[in-house]
């Protein structure tokens, strides 16, 4: 190989091990999942029979699919927005504190460190209508005279779980935004203050643009995690009551392991993947744009 060709190939050679690893660890399972989504494959009939788009047509025309898709979008969009507002708000507040920053940063991370199933079971018992401590306090301070059915009322259950997930996941936003604030442009902020700018203006025109790459990358991660989050819902409501908390991952799991239909389950997984891609592409475009404008790409 001549020298210029080698020079051109050099960066790709550095990337080769990672690419091979990704192909084996990620590409193969995803590819296999896509392939089996085109086969009629159940435990009843382990002969995999090619069925084209039949699995997709079946799951997309199932009466349950649209409500479940709606639950999934509500769970993901409302959840990520709330996590961002709570986590970023807390990070900005703690950053502005004079004393106790270290203590607050430690305390804020605790919910994120607790295992998902422990979080789920703890909240499940706290939110019980009759013996739960939340209902006790709600009635103590006179917010309601009746027990609130946080987990058992179909109209409330999904929002209850979104709240619990925000409690658990907001600390990740807190952590990322706090990290981003460590190298905030102090000189620009000081100049703005000297020019008479108030905090909302500084936040909007100096701090948020500085945090933009962090917000974008954190947004991608938390969107994917939230959309795929399984433990909390499964350990509390198993998707009930009346499928009001069933999201695509819960339905995918049930399709495979309750109804033993692996082909349809694979089709649902592919639909989830497409959904994640659609949700994340704007984030990623923004991230690549930021990297490009920063001269990284």
């Amino acid at each position: 190989m001549n020298k210029p060709a080698l020079r051109r190939a050099e960066p790709y050679l550095y990337m080769l091990p990672s690419c091979v690893l990704m192909l084996v660890m990620l590409g193969y399972p995803i590819g296999y999942n896509i392939v089996i989504s085109f086969f009629n494959w159940t435990l009843k009939n382990q002969e995999k029979v090619f069925s084209g788009f039949a699995n997709y047509i079946d799951v997309l025309t199932d009466d349950k699919f649209l409500p479940i898709l709606q639950n999934t979008l509500t769970w993901t969009i409302a959840g990520v927005l709330a996590q961002m507002l709570v986590g970023a708000g807390a990070a900005l507040f703690v950053d502005s504190m004079g004393r106790g920053k270290k203590f607050m940063r430690t305390i804020m991370l605790v919910p994120w460190l607790i295992p998902g199933v422990v979080t789920a079971l703890t909240w499940k018992w706290m939110l019980l209508a009759d013996f739960g401590i939340i209902n006790y306090f709600i009635q103590l301070i006179g917010l309601s005279e009746k027990n609130v059915l946080f987990m058992s009322e179909p109209k409330i259950a999904l929002w209850t779980l979104i709240f619990v997930n925000v409690w658990k996941a907001a600390p990740f936003w807190f952590l990322m935004i706090t990290a981003g604030l460590q190298n905030k442009p102090v000189d620009q902020i000081e100049s703005a203050k000297l020019d008479g700018a108030r905090y909302p203006s500084i936040l909007r025109h100096v701090i948020l643009p500085h945090l933009s790459p962090v917000i974008t990358s954190t947004g991608i991660l938390t969107t994917i995690w939230t959309l795929n989050y399984f433990d909390l819902i499964w350990a509390t409501t198993k998707g009930g009551p009346m499928d009001s908390t069933t999201t695509l991952p819960i339905y995918t799991y049930r399709m495979a392991f309750e109804f033993n239909n692996f082909g349809a389950s694979a089709a649902l997984a592919v639909i989830s993947l497409i959904l994640v891609s659609l949700v994340c592409i704007p984030y990623l475009k923004k991230m690549f744009g930021d990297l490009k404008s920063g001269g990284v790409l």
């Binding site: 990620l26 994917i224 795929n228 399984f230 990623l284 475009k285």
Partner: peptide, 16 residues
């Protein structure tokens, strides 16, 4: 972009 989404989505399976 697509490659990154696929990779991240596959990694996200950790919670299920």
């Amino acid at each position: 972009i697509i490659g990154t989404v696929l990779s991240l989505a596959a990694c996200a399976g950790q919670s299920s």
